[in-house]
C-alpha cells in the first residue's frame, strides 16, 4: 500500500469504495475520512464477479462506484454508480496531482489520452480501437518473445542508446518480427528499446491528438515500466508524473465520485 498524500481531499466523511474492473486486473480502493484505508490489485479471470465478490467480502462502505470494462456487469449485481474510465482517471489523478492536465493511461488492453481543462473537467480524450497494439498486453507478449520478465525488459531498454526499430504495431506481426530478429542475432537490448519506442510513439500520437497541456500524469499498469516513463519524458521534454500506485487511480477516482 502506498503512502497517502494529504491531497486526497474529500469533503464528506462517508466510507467510500471504488472498483475498477479492467480486462487484466481488478482494483479496489476504500476511502474513509480522506484516507485510503484499503487498496488492492488482483488479477481478473474468467469469472469476474466471483473475484469481485471475494474482494468485497467483509468490506465496509457506504457507497461504491464502478468503472473499467466490467463496470456494467458489476452494476448488475451491486447497487452502485457507474462512470467511464475517462472520468474515473480524471477525478483520481487530480486528487493526487491537482495541477496535471494531461493523462496517459496504458492498461492491459487499451490506451487512453485525456486532456483536462483548468478545473479538471475532461476536454478531450482518445482511445485505441479494437486491437491491443501498444498496450500492456503487447509489452507482455514482446517480453515473452525476448525471454525477459517485465523488469528485465524495461532495464534492457534503458541499458543501450541505440534501438532496433520494429516496423509493425500489430501484436501478431510484431511478435514474429521480434522472433526473426532474435534469430538473426540482433542485440536483445536494442530490440527491447525498439519495442518500447514503438509503444511510446503510439502514445505520443494519441497525446498530440488531445493536446499536451504541460506536465503529464502516466497511469495504468504500464506506468510501472520505468523505461517508458524515462524515454517518454526525454522525447517530449516534459515532466512525467507517476503516482505511487499507478494502477489504482481509476478506483480512487470512483471512490471520490461517490
Amino acid at each position: 500500500m502506498g503512502s497517502v498524500p494529504s491531497t486526497y481531499l474529500i469533503t464528506n466523511y462517508m466510507i467510500s469504495a471504488g472498483i475498477d474492473i479492467g480486462s487484466r486486473t481488478i482494483k479496489l480502493v476504500i476511502l474513509s475520512e480522506n484516507i485510503i484505508t484499503f487498496e488492492q490489485v488482483v488479477d481478473n479471470s474468467f469469472n469476474t464477479m466471483e473475484i469481485c465478490n471475494k474482494l468485497l467480502d467483509g468490506k465496509n462502505y457506504d457507497k461504491i462506484t464502478s468503472t473499467g470494462y466490467g463496470r456494467h456487469l458489476f452494476a448488475d449485481y451491486y447497487e452502485c454508480d457507474v462512470i467511464s474510465e475517462i472520468k474515473a482517471f480524471s477525478l483520481g489523478i487530480r486528487s493526487v496531482f491537482p495541477n496535471v492536465r494531461t493523462i496517459l493511461d496504458i492498461g492491459g488492453q487499451d490506451t487512453k489520452a485525456i486532456s483536462l481543462d483548468e478545473q479538471g473537467k475532461v476536454k478531450k480524450f482518445e482511445m485505441n480501437d479494437k486491437c491491443a497494439a501498444g498496450t500492456g498486453r503487447f509489452l507482455e507478449i514482446m517480453a515473452m518473445a525476448l525471454r525477459y520478465n517485465l523488469d528485465q525488459f524495461s532495464t534492457a531498454a534503458l541499458s543501450v542508446n541505440e534501438k532496433e526499430s520494429i516496423s509493425s504495431m500489430c501484436t501478431v506481426f510484431a511478435e514474429s518480427e521480434v522472433v526473426s530478429m532474435i534469430g538473426k542475432g540482433y542485440d536483445r537490448n536494442k530490440i527491447s528499446r525498439g519495442i518500447h519506442f514503438s509503444i511510446i510513439n503510439r502514445a505520443i500520437n494519441m497525446l498530440k491528438k488531445v493536446n499536451i497541456e504541460d506536465d503529464i500524469a502516466f497511469v495504468g499498469g504500464v506506468a510501472n515500466n520505468i523505461a517508458i516513463k524515462v524515454l517518454l519524458s526525454e522525447i517530449l521534454g516534459k515532466k512525467i508524473y507517476v503516482p505511487n500506485n499507478p494502477q489504482t487511480i481509476g478506483a480512487i477516482g470512483c471512490a471520490i465520485y461517490n
Binding site: 470494462y69 456494467h72 462512470i83 467511464s84 474510465e85 475517462i86 472520468k87 473537467k121 475532461v122 476536454k123 480524450f125 482511445m127
Partner: peptide, 10 residues
C-alpha cells in the same frame, strides 16, 4: 461504449 459514456459525462 466507454468513449460514448465518457463523452456524455463530458
Amino acid at each position: 461504449k466507454t468513449r460514448i459514456e465518457a463523452f456524455i459525462e463530458r
